[in-house]
Design a protein around this nucleic acid. Structure first.
Lengths: 369, 369
DNA sequence: CATCTCCGGTAGAGCGCTCCAACTGTAGAC
DNA sequence: GTCTACAGTTGGAGCGCTCTACCGGAGATG
């Protein structure tokens, strides 16, 4: 019953009969070919709408041997980063008459792999992988069957194209911003082996060196999570030489760090400045107001899709594009505290070290207990 | 060149020739039919892997007249709510051997409509629309061609199935929680005409009535945004009879409200309690720790997909399912302040009313300026 | 030994479309 | 009046698969 609803969907043939023309002519009208008389066009489209005809994409693609479709594999729907990249891809694809089919890898290599198989089985004209976790060799093999562009992850030595943010440059922007505010003791909570973590870390180290701050550079391990940010901050503020500024590998870590810092009784940004990375909506929340590094996510999507479509149509090659990030100043950064205030700062710190191993707890909780 | 890569993809025929069997046999092997001898199966699959054969989905679906695919229309990729629902859909679909194709409506009715057309053109077996904005009549028309289930929006008087949260009940949980903590003056910042806003509002009003608090019930207009939450809180705390608790239509509004409340010098939860709705990742942030109402998002996806697939296979009808939300207590709610402290509260309030129309600004900003 | 069952396998007719070569008719060129 | 040009239209051969017969032969049955 319910599944039989479409069983008798009208076909090209039906329309042709109703309009009293050949199937080929209907086909031409459906693809609005210019070589159809006004009269025929009218009759055919009238018949089509009357019958509620809708071209069968599978039959069309099968016969025409192309799908005008690009498959987009999103690593994680939960992360808004992907939503913005997808918006850009969508815009560019639409402009060129391409359709998108999305799939979510759900942070799982097996599912990602399966989704790619489905793309191939559907004979998409090209593929964009965003934040894909699959090994480079797998992707390279894929890219030998169909054009593939990677967003957010560079894949040197493969035939894939890629569009990434210049993470090292972003790190440099962050550090320079803090340096210009008079900070010297700038620490970094990194992203472990997550995507982009390495260049952000090395960009940080490199810039610190350029600024002659190698001796105060300090990297603590993290993994892009809020908790990692909190742990990192705890470790940083436990020691004697506490930093006046922290640059974290992403916004989420920054929020975790802020939480701990405020709980230590330190005031942000007066006593400690914090810079995140990504400029997620989280950073923009008024309640947080995080100074951070912005990635041109949407534009990355546009560039990726455009490059892919050009390659599909032999109008260009797949290359590796590096996009420039930018600094967004909000309210977690300020001039470094005057040297004289360092006494009060280390005093405060002693409060904190009274419970150095305690799990992250907010000031709210502390108050009510 | 690059677009020619797939032009000579091997077909069933090629495999059949390589294995020295008929096309039909290869087809049977590819769909692992039981009626194939072990020997043939081996030879065919060997030939297939050697050639790198991959069944062409379009041809398969065209010939078999079904796609085993369900189209999922997501209203807004930026909202993590959709990601979790999609996870649930994905799980259920996979369990039944169905594939998903996702499309994003990007909060735009025209795009949503187009995506649905594509689904129909692709002859998906069923459709799930999540948070769809299209008019009920449009969806009803769609549902006459193919089975459709709506998630997050009930559509009475249509042939669609639906899975929604019992928003009114959620509101009741929130209000009762606050009431149990001794609050009486509980205000609501609503969601305007957004999805679910109406039942949350009426659930609030109804529960207040049940608790005999009709005279102190107070609803201010919002629209599910952070800014609306901030504005709502400003309005609430400007008056003389300020509430001791606020229930907002969603988490984002709650964050906006918290921001303003803290800026007024009021302490959360000691002086004001706040309850959000949705239990987004935002609420779970340690820095925020919002008490909120949880929607069983993932399970909603599972239920929607299961119901759809059952309907597709004539094993069940499409119905309207209401899922029960639950209360998640974090750190923004506490016992209502003792009556004696009301003096200090209204004093504080006067601080705020010094700049009642100022745009939302954080304490941080205030400090640095 | 004829017949009946199965099991494993096959031929061939589609599925609904596009594409190509070819055809018709009208118009302009000479 | 014949030739070319071209716009408009058409038949038919696929695209790569599934599905419905149907077929041949081994073993069971009487």
């Amino acid at each position: 019953m319910s599944n039989g609803r479409r069983s008798n969907a009208p076909t090209l043939e039906d329309v042709a009969q109703a309009a009293g023309v050949s199937r080929a002519l209907v086909s031409l009208v459906m693809r609005d070919s210019p070589r159809v008389s006004v009269e025929s066009r009218r009759r055919v489209s009238d018949a089509a709408t009357k019958l509620g005809y809708r071209p069968n994409l599978m039959a069309r693609n099968l016969a025409s041997r192309r799908t005008l479709t690009i498959g987009v594999l999103l690593n994680d729907l939960h992360n808004p980063w992907f939503a913005e990249v997808t918006d850009g891809i969508h815009d560019a694809a639409e402009r060129h008459g391409y359709q998108l089919i999305l799939a979510s890898g759900r942070r799982n290599a097996r599912l990602e792999s399966r989704a790619l198989d489905t793309f191939l089985a559907s004979r998409v004209d090209g593929i964009i992988v965003a934040g894909c976790r699959l090994p480079a060799t797998r992707l390279d093999a894929l890219a030998r069957e169909v054009s593939v562009v990677s967003v957010g992850r560079a894949l040197p030595k493969t035939v894939l194209g890629s569009v990434t943010t210049d993470d090292a440059f972003g790190a440099r922007l962050a550090v320079e911003h803090l340096h210009e505010l008079g900070h010297r003791r700038i620490a970094h909570i990194d992203g472990g082996k997550g995507a982009g973590a390495a260049p952000r870390r090395s960009g940080y180290l490199h810039t610190m060196r350029l600024l002659g701050l190698t001796d105060v550079a300090q990297v603590v391990a993290g993994d892009f999570t809020e908790e990692a940010g909190a742990r990192g901050a705890e470790r940083l503020f436990r020691g004697a030489d506490i930093p006046t500024a922290i640059f974290t590998a992403n916004d989420l870590s920054a929020v975790g760090a802020i939480d701990v810092i405020e709980r230590c009784g330190l005031v942000i940004p007066d006593e400690v400045s914090v810079v995140g990375f990504d400029n997620t909506s989280l950073a923009a929340l008024n309640h947080i107001g995080l100074t951070t590094i912005h990635q041109p996510r949407r534009e990355m999507g546009v560039v990726a899709a455009t490059m892919l479509i050009d390659a599909i149509n032999d109008r260009g090659a797949l290359t590796d594009v590096l996009m420039a990030p930018s600094l967004v100043v909000r309210r977690t950064t300020a001039r470094a505290p005057a040297a004289g205030s360092s006494a009060s700062r280390s005093q405060r710190n002693s409060v904190m070290s009274a419970a150095p191993t305690a799990p992250a707890r907010s000031p709210r909780e502390a108050k009510t207990s």
